[in-house]
Write a protein that binds this DNA or RNA. Structure first.
Length: 578
RNA sequence: CGGGACGUAGCGCAGCUUGGUAGCGUACCACCUUGGGGUGGUGGGGGUCGCAGGUUCAAAUCCUGUCGUUCCGACCA
């Protein structure tokens, strides 16, 4: 491809709406263009990158025995009602009506469709196990699209679904996909960590997320991991062992009584006022889960993790209550305490979830729904709670100890590029996706699903590989392998040699660009760095000695070598990725 | 969805307070210049000032509404 004809417009300035580096660079280097919020045009350079990522995925999925198909993007409401998700899936599901008023949605994922395909075709245990996948655009009407391709509304995803007749076969396929994913991300030049993750409100099934570790804002997930063993988990799923703490207030309080604690609105103020550790305080939080108030109790030096709490309740939507809503809950129970003094007392008609940390607390401090006082030396029996459910709803913090080996946990941020999930019969059961087993009995498929964000993977590669000048694509997913740059279009010898190198590269199957623009060298170099060609062959004044300059973008290492050697280095590198 | 900010040329922005010819940089076109890290100059093309309504002799500017974008909090590939 000649640079003069390549469809790319580079920008000097950062677009005002681009927050993270991958978004900024992909726009500046002419890969993407926003159409509307969370929806992007993939321009020719981007499309080449995406196709390479897709083809790596295809190759590994096919090797792993999966079969590619393609399902529709627009889906009928009826299937979603069968699975129960028409109601359960929130605002992310883009719903629309056709001209006859039939309700449809844009596919955010395809469990319903694949299950309907499977139940038509997979009738016998003899046909199982099977793994089917597609690579396709998805649409999720995100509450807040941001970070460019990292969280778009329309994005390209590889989604695979496996069907098995036993849990053992499912687990075998799960491991199979785990290995395929490891291969895929390695080939894309991305180091990933597989971490345990939350698997949604329904069912306690197994799932792992593949995270690209980037300690920047672009990593939206907190990942806790242990250096001494293989433990790694998303913050919404992580567990930990806690260090020893003072959790019995017997030495601090002689008896159970109500004491005055004026203006102690925060845990810090209260702990300081009473001259105790926060570990002796029971914190009471009010959440709104599926529109109903829920009381969460936790030792006050720890924070609640909302996804865990949501799962403990079995709800779909969670948020912290506003002060108005707290006032309303108080009023409904005959209290009028302000936040800071609320507690579970007299709230037994509400769902009350207590964190595991609460179990061992004794003679603690707790709010009793009366402003400016707390009960000290209290135990749960003093509060008249009749119904209490214990669950782990605690947010893990760095420095707590690994649940497997007891060493301190570390935290980092990660971009989730893939996820594997043991679904079980979550969809096959309600949708009547069944096969006949050896005993002649119809049984639901035991399913798994496996996703990779294709567009997100490409963006994550930019997050992981760039410098102040631009992108440093891993060779396997770069739009082109090499750019050949004659320094001056006026120098006949430079132009002639550059042309010859370019033609030789092309005839060797190398994806090359020739920068034939009549631009100053600075412009050409800046564009080459920004766009991120893995190799640059510059033909300049050193051609007088028969040499060219060979620059490796990943390291910015510069060599002055013969043209033939530059060519063979590129050919060799490209051979090694295939 | 709640809270803040912003909509003026492809991109980045000024102008608005105090109403009166729509500007700057960059990108694009032409010519000259320069030729190893976004060279310098001259001349050009390109804008219903997000949209609608209102006030006014006159609205980018003031008022009302609306749509869009974006940042901060709860979900996910």
């Amino acid at each position: 491809m000649k640079m003069s004809k390549l469809f790319v417009q580079t920008l000097r300035e950062v677009p005002s709406d681009a927050e993270v580096i991958s978004h900024q660079l992909l726009v500046r280097a002419g890969y993407i263009r926003k159409l509307t919020s969370g929806v992007y045009n993939f321009l020719p350079l981007m499309w080449k990158v995406l196709k390479k990522v897709e083809n790596i995925i295809r190759d590994e999925m096919d090797k792993a025995g999966a079969q590619e198909l393609l399902m529709p993007f627009v889906q009928p409401k009826e299937l979603w009602e069968e699975s129960g998700r028409w109601g359960a899936y929130g605002g992310e599901l883009m719903r629309l009506k056709d001209r006859h008023g039939r309700e449809m949605c844009l596919g955010p994922t395809h469990e319903e469709i694949i299950t309907s395909i499977a139940r038509d075709g997979l009738k016998s245990y003899k046909q199982l196990p099977v793994n089917l996948y597609q690579i396709q655009s998805k649409f999720r009407d995100e509450r807040r699209p941001r970070f460019g391709l990292l969280r778009g509304r329309e994005f390209i995803m590889k989604d695979a679904y496996s069907f098995a007749s036993s849990q053992e076969d499912l687990e075998k396929e799960y491991q199979n996909m785990w290995q395929a994913y490891t291969n895929i991300f390695n080939r894309c030049g991305l180091a990933t960590k597989a971490v345990q993750s939350d698997s949604g409100a329904i069912g306690g099934n197994v799932s792992h997320e593949f995270m690209v570790i980037t300690d920047t804002d672009a990593g939206e997930n907190d990942v806790f991991y242990c250096d001494d063993c293989d433990y790694a988990a998303n913050s919404n799923h992580a567990i930990s062992k806690l260090p020893q703490a003072v959790i019995d207030g017997a030495g601090y309080f002689n008896k159970t009584e109500i004491v005055s604690t004026p203006n102690c609105h925060s845990i810090e103020q209260l702990a300081e006022f009473l001259k105790i550790q926060p570990t002796l305080i029971l914190k009471s939080l009010v959440y709104i889960i599926d529109k109903k108030p829920v009381i969460a109790l936790i030792r006050a030096d720890k924070a609640a993790e909302e996804t865990k709490l949501l799962n403990a309740v079995g709800g779909l939507e969670i948020r912290i209550a506003t002060s108005e809503e707290i006032a309303e809950v108080m009023a409904n129970h005959g209290f009028k305490a302000v936040p800071g003094f609320i507690g579970p007392k007299g709230m037994s008609d509400l769902t009350i979830i207590a964190d595991e940390t609460v179990k061992d607390m004794k003679n603690f401090v707790v709010g009793v729904n009366e402003t400016d006082v707390h009960m000290v030396g209290a135990n749960l029996s003093d509060l008249g709670i009749t119904d209490l459910k214990y669950a782990d709803i605690r947010l893990v913090e760095a420095g707590e100890f690994c649940p497997q080996c007891g060493k301190p946990l570390k935290v980092t941020r990660g971009i989730e590029v893939g996820n594997i999930f043991q679904l079980g019969t979550k969809y096959s059961k309600p949708m009547n996706g069944v096969y006949l087993d050896t005993d002649g009995i119809a049984k639901p498929y035991i399913m798994g699903c496996y996703g990779i964000g294709v567009t997100r993977t490409a963006a994550a590669a930019v997050e992981a590989h760039h410098d102040e000048y631009g992108i440093k694509w891993p060779l396997a997913i770069a739009p082109y392998h090499v750019i050949v740059v004659p320094v001056s279009e006026k120098e006949e010898q430079q132009v002639a040699v550059a042309n010859k190198i370019y033609e030789e590269l092309r005839s060797s199957g190398i994806e090359a660009v020739l920068d034939d623009r009549d631009e100053r060298p600075g412009v050409k170099f800046k564009d080459a760095d920004l766009i991120g060609f893995p190799f640059r062959i510059t033909v300049g004044k050193t051609i007088a000695e028969g040499n060219v300059e060979f620059v490796t973008r990943s390291t910015n290492e510069k060599l002055v070598i013969k043209p033939e050697e530059a060519i063979s280095r590129v050919i060799e590198a490209v051979k090694n990725i295939k």
